[in-house]
């Protein structure tokens, strides 16, 4: 089974993947050191007739070395991660001018609302569609996550984004698709009976095409306001 991550399709996914591989290398080295060391000791120091173990209670110097090396390595990992985390999820990380999209989790579907002509959510001309997330290419998007009932978790593996949607809370999270095509949106938090099929399709369009899709859907919705939510 591969430890390599699948292809990514969002602006900050590369940063996450880079950290993942860095940790994979560091922990991989530690893994090898310990496992090879164990096997080596098992073979070299196995009991022999008249064998005698070395009588020692330890060496403070060796302990200082591995304690401080570990401490330095984890602090470095922590500092590197703190910056990336802040850029993705920090309070002020949402890029100005990001396109707002409403994501409302409800057992067991995603209600996705797009702003109308005014570019604002919650203004009456919003367009709501079930289980279909359409996005423009290379534009930052800010999703406003809410939930109707249980806790759901908004997860688009290809974008390396995950955020819980908690009833009673409004949580904003941003991302920026960098590839066109279709992807899958999953619920990653156990939310009840149909959790496993709480799935939506994400489609990333070139910008002009996205606009065209939005206008088309907007017109259809105006003609029959309830049709879209009922698919």
């Amino acid at each position: 089974m591969s430890w390599l991550l699948p292809p990514h399709a969002s602006s900050y996914a590369a940063d996450i993947d880079w950290l993942y591989y860095l940790i994979l290398i560091i922990t991989g080295i530690a893994f090898l050191v310990v496992q090879i060391g164990l096997v080596w000791f098992i073979i070299k120091y196995r009991a022999r007739p008249n064998g005698k173990a070395l009588y020692t209670h330890g060496f403070a110097k060796a302990e200082w070395i591995w304690t401080s090396v570990t401490a330095v390595v984890v602090v470095v990992i922590g500092l590197l991660s703190a910056g990336v985390w802040d850029r993705i999820k920090g309070r002020d990380s949402i890029p100005p001018g990001a396109i707002p999209i409403g994501i409302h989790g409800k057992q067991f579907e995603w209600h996705i609302s797009y702003p109308g002509a005014d570019g604002q959510l919650g203004t009456g001309d919003d367009l709501s569609i079930r289980n279909q997330l359409h996005l423009p290419l290379n534009k930052p998007v800010v999703a406003t996550l809410t939930s109707e009932d249980a806790i759901h978790s908004f997860f688009i593996p290809a974008f390396r984004i995950k955020q819980d949607a908690v009833p009673g809370m409004t949580i904003r999270v941003w991302f920026q698709p960098t590839d066109t095509g279709t992807f899958e949106l999953a619920c990653a938090e156990l939310c009840g009976l149909g959790h496993y099929r709480m799935r939506a399709v994400v489609t990333v369009h070139a910008e002009a095409e996205y606009q065209r899709w939005l206008d088309e859907r907007g017109r259809a919705a105006a003609a029959s306001p309830t049709a879209l939510l009922q698919r």
Partner: peptide
């Protein structure tokens, strides 16, 4: 360590 690291934990 992977999960302790917040950005990797996102995924």
């Amino acid at each position: 360590v992977f999960m302790a690291t917040t950005p990797v934990d996102i995924y």
